[in-house]
Design a protein around this nucleic acid. Structure first.
Lengths: 199, 199
DNA sequence: AGCCGATCGAACCGATTGGTACCATCTGAT
DNA sequence: ATCAGATGGTACCAATCGGTTCGATCGGCT
């Protein structure tokens, strides 16, 4: 049965559906933890279709990582934006969102960092670097609006807290990694303000 | 030529030499980035010898990770101890040592985190968790001696900075990741002291 | 109605993988 | 001198991998 009976034949939609389904599978199993055959079975797609859309397994991986990176960044950015205009509240929203992510049973750490550790390939490294840059933009913006003396440095320190909290949450049992990171972020935020704390 | 002419036949020494040589190779290439055949060539050892000592490739990997974890922890602990008794100086020494590591051309991030991302196996996860626990002990000790109100929380926040700085150093170009992390660590340290900053 | 292209399912391929077996050779202890 | 055990080198194995090919079949546009 070559084509499902009720299925809509639309290459763009098929491609999007493959990426959609592959995101959680590759995250859970790892890039090399699942073969193309089993992957296709999980995606309910034939090998030929997969290879026509992505060329190679690596092509699929890169498309999946790009999409996942964009979603994660949009998600965090949205959480910050939804918290209002106060940089302090925005920062709190970011770490609350992260904690929510950590509590998800399927949480396995940052997918892009994991991918970069698995595939020592320039393309994957580039996606990961851009992903961190996206986080950095968000955090530097918050630092800037908070009146930090050096927003770039504070942004980078906050990025370390974000990624560090993710690493710790992935490999230690204590469940309040996001909370502790948020407290630390607040401390850094108030300490680096342009206005003196006693002014 | 089955046995090298001047070589010393000593199983324990052979095993140690294999681990010694495998540590940088597995770090550079990744756990699955090199096959057993090529690995044996790089280690100047035969497959039979390798399998007699470690049973499986996974066995070698675990032995290598254990050893690497212990060395890293000893190295950081030693750097802190060599800095004297002042917790502040000890913390500075830790991040200086990390920065030195980041500057090494072969630096590829934390080997244990990379390994855990590559092999979704309980044994590797356990080694990584224990590795982080070792760091946590060191940092919590510093926090405690520094008079932190809650040494366990501060220790955990410092751990996030350490791992976050390592991640950022591995995936971003800016070379002063350790410096920024150290500044942040100082800020957290002074803010969390039991004595009021204005007292 | 009819054609084109998208899709599935399955067979197939060469390459590589982790792991085993065998033997010649060397060391170290007796 | 002799023997047991450790080692190197090589050939080998079954399994798996990423990737290709082909025919049958269905949807969508004309």
């Amino acid at each position: 049965m070559p084509v499902a009976k009720g299925s809509t034949i639309d290459p763009a939609r098929t491609r999007a559906a493959i990426i959609e389904a592959a995101i959680p599978v590759l995250y859970e199993r790892g890039l090399d933890g699942i073969g193309v055959a089993e992957l296709c079975a999980r995606l309910s797609v034939s090998k030929e279709t997969l290879y026509r859309h992505f060329g190679t397994k690596e092509g699929l991986i890169e498309a999946v990582l790009e999409e996942r990176s964009e979603r994660m960044t949009r998600w965090l950015t949205g959480a910050a934006a939804a918290a209002g205009n106060d940089p302090h509240d925005q920062l709190a929203a970011v770490f609350d969102a992260l904690q929510q992510w950590y509590d998800d049973p399927v949480f396995r750490g940052c997918a892009m960092l994991n991918a970069a550790a698995q595939h020592h390939v320039e393309a994957v490294r580039a996606i990961t670097a851009r992903h961190l840059d996206g986080y950095l933009d968000l955090l530097t913006g918050i630092a800037d609006r908070a009146g930090a003396a050096d927003p770039h440095v504070l942004g980078r320190q906050l990025l370390m807290l974000v990624e560090g909290a993710t690493v710790v949450a992935a490999h230690q049992d204590a469940a309040d990694s996001g909370e502790h990171a948020r407290q630390a972020a607040f401390t850094l935020l108030s300490a680096s303000s342009r206005t003196s704390p006693c002014g």
